Amino acid sequence: GMDVRRLKVNELREELQRRGLDTRGLKAELAERLQAALSGPSSG
């Protein structure tokens, strides 16, 4: 899988935006949010 901790802030935001998620917050928050999205149930 993707290691969200290795991504830069702008990369985290890009991935979040692609999934329609909130791109605001600290890098740690963005990484946590993206990780949750990646490990969560895949819809679609």
Rank of each mutant, 00 (worst) to 15 (best):
L12A: 01
L30A: 01
V4F: 08
R6V: 07
D22M: 05
E11R: 09
V9S: 05
E11M: 06
L21D: 02
S39K: 12
M2F: 15
G40F: 10
L21T: 02
V9D: 04
A31K: 07
E29I: 08
T23E: 05
E11N: 04
S39G: 11
A37Q: 04
A31R: 14
K8S: 15
L26P: 14
L12H: 00
K27R: 12
R33F: 02
E32P: 02
L21S: 02
R5N: 10
L21Q: 04
G25D: 01
G25L: 02
G44Q: 12
R24L: 07
E15R: 05
L26S: 15
R13H: 03
Q17G: 11
N10I: 08
R24T: 14
R6G: 07
E32V: 09
L7N: 00
V9K: 08
L30G: 01
L30M: 06
T23R: 04
V4P: 08
G20Y: 03
R6K: 14
G44E: 11
V9Q: 04
K27P: 10
R13E: 03
V9Y: 15
M2G: 06
L34Y: 03
L21H: 04
E15Y: 07
L34W: 02
A37G: 03
M2L: 14
L21M: 07
E15M: 12
E29R: 06
A36V: 08
L16I: 01
A37S: 06
L38H: 02
G1I: 15
R6D: 06
L38D: 02
R5D: 06
R19V: 02
T23P: 09
L26V: 13
K27Q: 09
G1E: 10
G25A: 02
E15T: 03
L21R: 03
R19Q: 04
K8W: 04
R6A: 09
R24N: 12
E14M: 15
L12W: 01
L16A: 02
K8E: 09
Q17H: 13
R13L: 06
D22G: 05
L16R: 00
L16H: 01
L16F: 02
R13G: 01
L30Q: 01
D3R: 11
S42L: 11
D22A: 07
Q35W: 14
L21A: 04
K27V: 08
S43I: 12
K27T: 06
A37D: 04
T23W: 08
L12D: 00
L34P: 00
G25S: 01
T23S: 07
P41S: 13
E14R: 15
Q17N: 10
S42D: 11
E15V: 04
G40L: 12
N10T: 12
S43M: 12
L38I: 10
A36L: 12
E14N: 10
K8T: 15
A37Y: 14
M2R: 08
R5I: 06
R13F: 05
Q17R: 15
R24A: 11
R18L: 08
G20A: 03
A37T: 05
L7V: 02
L16W: 02
E15W: 10
N10E: 14
Q17P: 00
D3S: 09
E32A: 15
Q35R: 14
Q17E: 10
A36Q: 11
L21V: 03
R19L: 14
E11W: 07
E14I: 13
G40Y: 10
G40P: 09
S42F: 08
S42M: 11
D22T: 05
R19I: 05
A31Q: 15
G44R: 10
K27F: 11
R5P: 05
D3V: 10
V4W: 08
V4K: 03
A31V: 15
L16P: 00
R33M: 02
E15N: 04
Q35L: 15
G25F: 00
A28K: 12
P41E: 14
E29D: 08
P41L: 14
R13W: 04
M2H: 07
A36E: 08
G44I: 12
G1L: 14
R6F: 09
Q17K: 15
L38T: 04
Q35T: 09
A28R: 13
D22W: 03
L7Q: 02
R5G: 09
D3G: 06
R6H: 09
A31W: 10
E29V: 10
D22K: 08
G44P: 12
S42T: 12
E32H: 11
R24E: 09
L38S: 03
K8Y: 05
L16Q: 00
D3W: 15
R5H: 12
R19S: 02
V4Q: 03
G20C: 08
D3T: 08
E11S: 05
L30R: 00
E15A: 09
V4C: 11
S39R: 14
G44H: 12
R24K: 11
A37R: 03
V4D: 01
L7H: 02
A28G: 08
S43N: 12
L34G: 00
G40Q: 13
Q17F: 14
V9H: 05
V9M: 13
R33K: 03
R13Y: 05
A37K: 03
L16N: 00
G20F: 04
R6P: 04
G40W: 10
L30W: 02
R5Y: 13
Q17W: 13
L30K: 00
L12I: 07
M2K: 07
E29A: 09
K27D: 05
V9A: 07
L26K: 15
E29F: 04
G1M: 13
R18I: 07
S43T: 12
G20N: 06
L34T: 00
G25V: 01
R6N: 10
K8F: 04
A28P: 07
G40V: 11
E14H: 13
L16E: 00
P41F: 14
E11I: 05
R13Q: 05
E29W: 07
L26N: 15
M2W: 12
R19F: 05
A36R: 14
G1R: 12
A31S: 06
T23V: 07
R18T: 04
A36K: 12
R6L: 11
V9N: 03
N10H: 15
P41W: 13
K8M: 07
G44F: 14
K27H: 11
T23Q: 05
